[in-house]
Amino acid sequence: MSPYLAAISIYPIKSLDGIDVNQATILESGALQHDREFALFDEQGHPFGEVKSQKSKVKSHFVNGKRNAKVHLLRSAFDANFKTLSLHIQGTDQKAIFHVDNERSLLETWLSDYFGFAVKFVQNTITGFPDDTNAKGPTVISTGTLEEVASWFPEVSVDEMRLRMRANIEIGGVPPFWEDQLFTETGRFVQFQVGEVLFEGINPCQRCIVPARDSQTGKLTTNFQKIFVAKRKESLPPWTTSTRFNHFFRLSVNTNIPVSQAGKILNQGDEVRILGISEND
Rank of each mutant, 00 (worst) to 15 (best):
residue 232 R to Q: 10
residue 243 T to K: 09
residue 215 S to N: 12
residue 237 P to A: 07
residue 238 P to F: 13
residue 229 V to N: 10
residue 219 K to L: 13
residue 237 P to S: 04
residue 221 T to M: 14
residue 240 T to E: 00
residue 232 R to N: 12
residue 244 R to S: 05
residue 252 S to G: 03
residue 258 P to T: 05
residue 215 S to P: 15
residue 227 I to T: 14
residue 240 T to Q: 05
residue 234 E to I: 15
residue 233 K to E: 03
residue 242 S to F: 08
residue 243 T to W: 09
residue 256 N to D: 06
residue 215 S to K: 12
residue 220 L to W: 09
residue 216 Q to K: 15
residue 246 N to K: 12
residue 222 T to Q: 12
residue 239 W to D: 01
residue 223 N to K: 14
residue 254 N to P: 00
residue 243 T to L: 07
residue 220 L to I: 15
residue 237 P to R: 12
residue 255 T to E: 01
residue 224 F to A: 13
residue 247 H to P: 01
residue 243 T to R: 10
residue 249 F to H: 11
residue 256 N to W: 05
residue 223 N to Q: 13
residue 235 S to M: 10
residue 228 F to D: 06
residue 250 R to H: 06
residue 249 F to D: 03
residue 229 V to Y: 05
residue 240 T to M: 02
residue 241 T to A: 05
residue 237 P to V: 12
residue 227 I to L: 10
residue 218 G to D: 12
residue 238 P to M: 09
residue 219 K to F: 10
residue 251 L to R: 00
residue 248 F to L: 08
residue 224 F to K: 15
residue 245 F to D: 01
residue 250 R to C: 06
residue 228 F to Q: 08
residue 216 Q to D: 11
residue 236 L to E: 06
residue 249 F to T: 05
residue 244 R to A: 09
residue 241 T to E: 06
residue 240 T to W: 01
residue 235 S to H: 14
residue 232 R to D: 03
residue 220 L to G: 09
residue 254 N to K: 03
residue 246 N to V: 11
residue 235 S to G: 02
residue 255 T to S: 00
